[in-house]
Nucleic acid binder design. Structure first.
Lengths: 179, 179
DNA sequence: ACCTGAACACCGTTCAAGT
DNA sequence: ACCTGAACACCGTTCAAGT
């Protein structure tokens, strides 16, 4: 019985850590479409080693942003405790937008995760949306996948000078969801 | 004095027409990111000829969808004549979404054009939005670039089974814009 | 004036050889 | 068990040579 994390050989573990560290930095600067070659090179490993640890770009993005996703998930119950579910959803969406704006590659992860109804991000948001809908606060004909599609549209390819527009756009969406 | 359209040598004109025709078909099937190589090949011309006529992918997209853009522009005054400006904007946005869903490459054009405040598409929509704002029907703190960002988010990378969701999402946005 | 396609650059992905 | 990087595939873009 273990905790589900495979034990790696010392050199493999070191390469894994270096890849995560380098990818974090490079995604930060260049965004989620940075070349994998540059990440491998920056980490001082062969490109094959990157592929061994992370068979897809998505796997790498998930590993790099695992802690932020965990934070988004953890925020759900604490928000529900403090405020009404519609306000909680608004707050949670703003947090998601903030992560996308702060961390270069996060929006690349959001882009794929938002399309799946049972990804960690979608599942977390769904709890808030469903609660708000059950309370009759938000319209019933919208799913979390729908909502994240709109949110993703707000942050994708955004220019630095447009960042200040995002709050307004999130508020448009939330207002549009009110019953 | 001419009409602004350069007169091409007969073979050049034929190649131009073939490129447009082939590009229309291929964008339809594969979307705006189809390879330029496949378009040149399908048109029976060298890749250099494609670049001579269309120096960028965007130039090709604009040429292919010129008539649809013209329709969107032409629709503005006729919509304003028939209904209130907020309803006109909703109708116009639905038309824009329909084009993006119907024509494979149109959303690729929308993606770039929507970011410029004076592209033909943005300018056309702006007239409706401004009228609706002046009439006090829609909130004043949103621009057409903002709005097209949301619209683009709705249609980009949409799976066939999600197409039916787009009407709901457009209505969420319009509702959210109401004062 | 226009066309062709080879050539170059760049990136993703695999896999044989090595430790 | 893990790593390396050459090799292959693919695509965008340019430009010398040709008509």
């Amino acid at each position: 019985m273990d905790d589900g994390v495979a034990v790696l050989r010392a050199d493999a573990q070191r390469n894994y850590d270096r890849l995560i560290h380098t990818a974090t930095t490079i995604f930060e600067v260049q965004g989620a479409s940075a070349t994998l070659e540059s990440i491998a090179k920056g980490a001082g490993v062969g490109i094959g080693t990157l592929y061994r640890h992370f068979p897809t770009r998505r796997a790498l993005l998930e590993a790099v942003y695992a802690d932020r996703v965990a934070k988004l998930v953890a925020r759900v119950p604490s928000l529900l405790q403090k405020m009404s579910p519609d306000k909680a959803l608004l707050s949670w969406l703003e947090m998601t937008v903030d992560y996308s704006l702060q961390y270069g590659g996060f929006s690349g992860l959001l882009e794929v995760a938002s399309k799946e109804k049972d990804s960690p991000i979608t599942s977390a948001g769904s709890q808030l949306l469903t609660k708000a809908q059950e309370a009759g606060l938000l319209r019933n004909d919208v799913t979390m996948v729908d909502l994240l599609r709109l949110i993703n549209g707000i942050v994708v390819d955004i220019a630095p000078e447009d960042v200040k527009r995002t709050n307004t756009l999130v508020s448009v969406i939330i207002t549009g969801l009110k019953t």
